[in-house]
Design a binder for these strands. Structure first.
Lengths: 154, 154
DNA sequence: AAGAAATTGTTATTCAATGTCAATAAGCCT
DNA sequence: AGGCTTATTGACATTGAATAACAATTTCTT
């Protein structure tokens, strides 16, 4: 473990700070939810999160999850990824290599990728519009090779 | 009007073709909705679309709008832009200069921009993952100058 | 022109997300 | 350490976008 790792505060520390600055409280329920979110690198929605927590034998109401999510977004710990099937889907972004999504319009499969050029675009935009840039979300939509074949033979 | 313009079929023609290929029917209701969508260059949601149609003295049920939207997406005439306030927002993409969005996380203001580099990224992705690329959606999130000032003085 | 099948509007339904509120508990203050 | 203020919790009720069901209608093929 090098010094870089030691310097990076945990997501819980980040969130504690965030809460203190807003005069809000750190509760066991919030800790449970955050730990669950950061325990995997998968996308999640409120339902999958709730089930994951219950499977560990813990108990938190869905209302608390719904109430926590906007706070985590404000704290830049998670972000909305896409809305599908009537539910918003999220992923955590802190302590996680940033990536973008290539999605198949037919079968909804998702490939992840990164590209440095987007960072440059971001930077220029910040200067041009006088924004403080927080993050970006690049979603490329197409038809995967499997679905292309299906469409050709049909 | 130059030859390039003459060659580009209207969105109605595109959609008629699309419907025919799927064994679906072209109805006055569908025509009304599409014309409304393509009559402005603004983002829209189901409600604003419905109201716009009624203000022109026309009548189409909301159910028909909800039913048409997935078809227009499949036909690559419109796309989902963002989900906000419990509603999906769309914009038409056919016959319209493509652009991306820079959004302020605080006040939800939106700036539009274009960047050729994303097209290049798209192209490379298509080759790398063997996808037929249809489009992309780049959303950059930040804090606008006005909101930065507010946060500093607070 | 007729008939098969898709589409429409109406109505009912679903379910994610939010609001309400009394009970509880975090965290500051002395 | 204990008390007090007030944010937070969970249960329940409510909202509202989106979808389903279905009978009446209309498109489009032959």
């Amino acid at each position: 473990m090098d010094s870089k790792d030691q310097k990076r505060p945990s997501e819980l520390d980040i969130f504690r700070d965030f809460l203190r600055r807003q005069g809000m409280r750190y509760t066991p329920e919030r800790e449970t939810i955050i730990k669950e979110i950061f325990s995997t690198h998968e996308h999640f929605d409120v339902d999958s999160l709730y089930l994951g927590i219950r499977q560990k034998g813990l108990r938190v109401s869905k209302a608390s999850i719904y109430r926590l999510i906007p706070l985590l977004i404000k704290a830049n710990l998670i972000e909305e990824v896409f809305f599908e099937n009537g539910q918003m889907h999220y992923e955590h972004i802190y302590g996680h290599e940033h990536h973008c999504h290539l999605r198949c319009q037919e079968c909804r499969k998702i490939e992840e990728f990164s590209d440095e050029r987007v960072v440059q675009i971001e930077k220029e935009l910040g200067e041009r519009f006088n924004y403080r840039i927080l993050r970006h979300k690049l979603e490329v939509i197409g038809i995967c090779s499997t679905c292309q074949k299906k469409m050709n033979t049909a």
